[in-house]
């Protein structure tokens, strides 16, 4: 079991697209994958099931007392399961703010789950929900779009991860790497790629996700690119990304266990 959080506080960089298609890619390598939709936009939920804001959802687990097992769905992708999100999650940051141990609610809920990978899709913010996602993860994968200004604000994400590591004693939370998205052969994209490689030396994944309309179409058809258009440039890239992530973050043959290591 390895839990990977897909995070970037910037919006529209391909977090959800990466979460959904990486999950499908790993599933096609014969892994059992659980996707957790921690975003009130619930885009991953729509992409994997066609449902819009289903209730009950992760919200009832994080804010209410519902058991996680009761909101695990089979998805349109074989070997991919989902804990759906819904619009109420957009209030969860505020609703959880005063709760003790608020950052640990997801990790606690996932305890004992037995999948090979857990992939957590996060909202474009660094609030309590994203903190829950990070606290529940072993690794963070950061999609960065190769478009103009995409690197602005990135320091904040890294600082948040560092702060959380200290605050919550997440000694084993690490950035697995940065994956470039929306690649096209333009000066901007190539320049940004160059800057990215310098800034995140040794941590930029080999796989670049190209800008590819089929990825958007697949989302609208409620399935992964690997079902919709496996041979498209996006399909090939996500197949390659899954192989790379498998090498980088090997699945562990034991159930999920990630708890606060010091005070309970």
């Amino acid at each position: 079991m390895a839990a990977i959080c897909i995070a970037n506080n910037k919006g529209g960089v391909g977090k959800t697209t990466t979460a959904v298609n990486l999950a499908a890619g790993l599933a096609r390598l014969n892994y059992r994958v659980l996707v957790v939709d921690v975003d009130g936009q619930a885009n991953a939920t729509y992409a994997l099931t066609g449902r819009v804001h289903p209730v009950p959802s992760l919200y009832d687990v994080l804010v209410g007392d519902r058991k996680l097992e009761s909101v695990i769905w089979q998805t349109n992708e074989e070997n991919v399961w989902l804990v759906p999100g819904d619009g109420r999650l957009q209030n969860a940051d505020v609703e959880l703010a005063a709760r003790p141990g608020r950052e640990w609610r997801l990790a606690k809920a996932l305890h004992g789950q037995n999948y090979d990978y857990i992939i957590i899709d996060t909202p474009p913010s660094l609030g309590v929900l994203t903190q829950n996602a990070l606290a529940a993860s072993h690794r963070v994968l950061i999609p960065i779009s190769l478009t103009e200004f995409s690197l602005i604000g990135m320091d904040k994400l890294e600082a948040t991860i560092e702060d959380l590591r200290d605050q919550l004693d997440l000694y084993d939370l690490e950035i697995a790497g940065v994956v470039a998205t929306f690649y096209e052969n333009t000066t901007t994209a190539n320049d940004t790629w160059g800057i990215l490689e310098k800034k995140y030396e040794g941590r930029v994944l080999e796989t670049r996700i190209p800008k590819n309309l089929d990825l958007e179409k697949a989302h609208r058809e409620n399935e992964s690119i690997l079902s919709f258009a496996p041979t498209s440039s996006g399909g090939q890239a996500y197949t390659q990304l899954a192989r790379e992530v498998k090498r980088l973050v090997p699945a562990q043959p034991r159930p999920y266990d990630r708890r606060r290591s010091q005070t309970a």
Partner: peptide
Amino acid sequence: RPRLITGASPDLGPGI
């Protein structure tokens, strides 16, 4: 008033 719907058809139930 937040409006929550269970997708296109409310009685599809969870999953497939």
